[in-house]
Design a protein around this nucleic acid. Sequence first.
DNA 1: TATTGTTATACTCTATAACTATA
DNA 2: TATAGTTATAGAGTATAACAATA
Lengths: 158, 158
Amino acid sequence: MSVNHSLADDLGFLLSRASGVVARSVSDALAPLGLRVRSYSVLALTGEDGAGVTQRRLAVLMGLDPSQVVALVDELESRGLVTRTPDPADRRNKLIVATEQGCQVRSQAQQLVDQAHSGYFARIPQGDLDRLRHVLQQIAFPDETPTEHEAETSTAGE
Amino acid sequence: MSVNHSLADDLGFLLSRASGVVARSVSDALAPLGLRVRSYSVLALTGEDGAGVTQRRLAVLMGLDPSQVVALVDELESRGLVTRTPDPADRRNKLIVATEQGCQVRSQAQQLVDQAHSGYFARIPQGDLDRLRHVLQQIAFPDETPTEHEAETSTAGE
DNA sequence: TATTGTTATACTCTATAACTATA
DNA sequence: TATAGTTATAGAGTATAACAATA
């Protein structure tokens, strides 16, 4: 399994290159909104649960150290895009919720991100993209049992 | 194509997460050899052409700015793993060639990288990995016509 | 004692401009 | 002039340890 390596065939290298290409494109697309990939991710995640997300959960979901989340939330909060309120049930938790303005910026951002993505993904068949998504999820979250939030994608082909 | 975003389904996000997971693992695996992902890539690329590789070409292949290549080559050169000699045909070019010791370290490194990769890729069917590689190449090198430098590898795939 | 968030710090990675030497 | 390499620098991303507030 380790014969005649060409770096252009190395999956780790290709992941890094592809990730960089897309991230740069997304970053450029988000610049007009004053967002970067990370702050966009935070904003996107705050929209997935109306009750709010704890910073700890943001860190887990984004694969970051909790200390890195602080500055991201600080910035969004100072711009009035999210609020940071202690959870009444457990005051150690801070619940991050998008403001109305934050929701507006988020949907604008999602459009821009989609445009940027389409520049790279549009030419690739939808089935390939679905398989790509599935495989990437396996790599990115190796511990997750796929049946948890995935039950429909059954590749099992050829 | 842009409905009901969940970040866990966002290809850009998944690329970044997966890339980070694998890169960290590879980086840890290479630590005993005093290499990081970047320096390993340089070393790997020097092995693909016996005549040597120019720094400019390294920069293009790795998607880096030429100025970033300098420090990488400096480090490998100071460790005696590569040599940096002016091209007699065009003395602006510096040809980077792996030394004998560099070749030894490279093959050790490739084994370690393979082990690290297998931790993530082994459970994924080979056909899926081939498709993944192909799609990633399209994303990472959108301008390339795949037949250009893929004519000789003839991996008997598809 | 354990957990959430926070601060501080250091290191790596990335991006850019200006300089040199060769062509 | 144009290109390959180099230097310098600033910003963004990443990793770690220590601390305060709360459970």
